[in-house]
Computed example of a mutant assay.
Amino acid sequence: MDLKPLLNKLEHYRSEKPNKVFTMYLNTDPADPDQQGGKWRLQLKNGLNNFESYLQEDGDSDEKRNYWAVKEKVENFMNENEMNLKKSVIIFATGDDDVWFADILQMPVKTAFFWEEEPVLDQLKEMQETFPKTGIILTQKDQIKYIDADLGTVNETNVYELDLDTEDWRLHQGTHKADSNLGSGGGKTSKKDEFYERFEANRYRWYKSIAPKLDKAAKNHGWERIYLVGESDEVNDLESHMNKTIEDKINKNLLDHEETKVLEEVL
């Protein structure tokens, strides 16, 4: 999720009674001790009911109708996504559908509800500053994978594999893992040794050829931070050929790990 368009819209959004804006930051993190037993359900119920009680006393029937429309959409979203929750949910909504944004995030928030003339963006802005658009590039000899992420959520994953016959890097979109150049069968050990020798002899040149593709991916995805992950010699060679600034290098072999686990390890 790219926060910039959302923030640009919400920062300039203003409304007047009876058309107010609902803002919700809901902590649904099952690992949080304060969320044991799905405590978020009670917090959601109380948060929604508190506004309804206030509006009943206020007596503005148009505002009540707008709020009830928002409440129904929020409850439907939570019911439909209850089994898919991660650490948090954020929602911005108006009764006339002029604003509707709801997303499940891997980042923690502090539970809060608002019904005001404008959206409350403090936590959203803090998330953007803490977890901006990020690219994580993982190396493992003849395979290089990049993960496009922000707010601790994986947006896209792509894998490049080096074809040793043509010495070209081939792109496999998605989480597909290409066949190994090491092959299989009776000659596997000697072939592996042969591959390692050839790779070490040509690594610098081969990584030089992939670096422009990674720079282009960084530009296209708008990465504000880039992390290189892999063996020291490999990430150092890759960094030396890339034009983009590298935020940090992590000397671990994580290419085969599940993407969300990589994010947790790196970020």
Rank of each mutant, 00 (worst) to 15 (best):
residue 8 N to E: 14
residue 11 E to A: 06
residue 12 H to E: 13
residue 12 H to P: 07
residue 23 T to Y: 02
residue 25 Y to P: 00
residue 30 P to G: 05
residue 31 A to C: 09
residue 33 P to W: 03
residue 35 Q to L: 13
residue 38 G to A: 09
residue 39 K to A: 15
residue 40 W to Q: 01
residue 44 L to F: 13
residue 48 L to T: 03
residue 48 L to W: 02
residue 54 Y to P: 05
residue 54 Y to V: 12
residue 55 L to P: 00
residue 59 G to I: 10
residue 59 G to R: 11
residue 61 S to K: 13
residue 66 N to S: 07
residue 66 N to D: 06
residue 80 E to H: 08
residue 83 M to E: 07
residue 90 I to F: 01
residue 96 D to A: 03
residue 98 D to C: 04
residue 102 A to K: 04
residue 102 A to T: 12
residue 105 L to D: 00
residue 109 V to Q: 01
residue 118 E to D: 11
residue 119 P to T: 06
residue 121 L to A: 05
residue 128 Q to F: 04
residue 131 F to M: 15
residue 134 T to A: 02
residue 135 G to A: 08
residue 136 I to D: 00
residue 139 T to V: 13
residue 145 K to G: 05
residue 146 Y to C: 01
residue 151 L to G: 03
residue 155 N to M: 11
residue 159 V to T: 15
residue 160 Y to S: 05
residue 160 Y to E: 00
residue 167 E to I: 08
residue 168 D to V: 12
residue 169 W to S: 01
residue 170 R to P: 02
residue 182 L to I: 10
residue 189 T to C: 04
residue 193 D to L: 08
residue 199 F to G: 00
residue 200 E to M: 11
residue 201 A to R: 03
residue 201 A to Q: 04
residue 203 R to C: 02
residue 204 Y to D: 10
residue 206 W to P: 00
residue 207 Y to S: 00
residue 209 S to Q: 15
residue 209 S to E: 12
residue 212 P to W: 09
residue 214 L to H: 06
residue 217 A to Q: 02
residue 218 A to H: 04
residue 223 W to R: 00
residue 228 L to G: 02
residue 230 G to V: 02
residue 233 D to M: 09
residue 235 V to S: 06
residue 235 V to N: 03
residue 242 M to L: 13
residue 244 K to R: 06
residue 245 T to F: 02
residue 246 I to A: 06
residue 249 K to T: 14
residue 251 N to I: 14
residue 253 N to H: 11
residue 255 L to Q: 04
residue 255 L to H: 07
residue 261 K to N: 05
residue 264 E to Y: 14
residue 266 V to M: 09
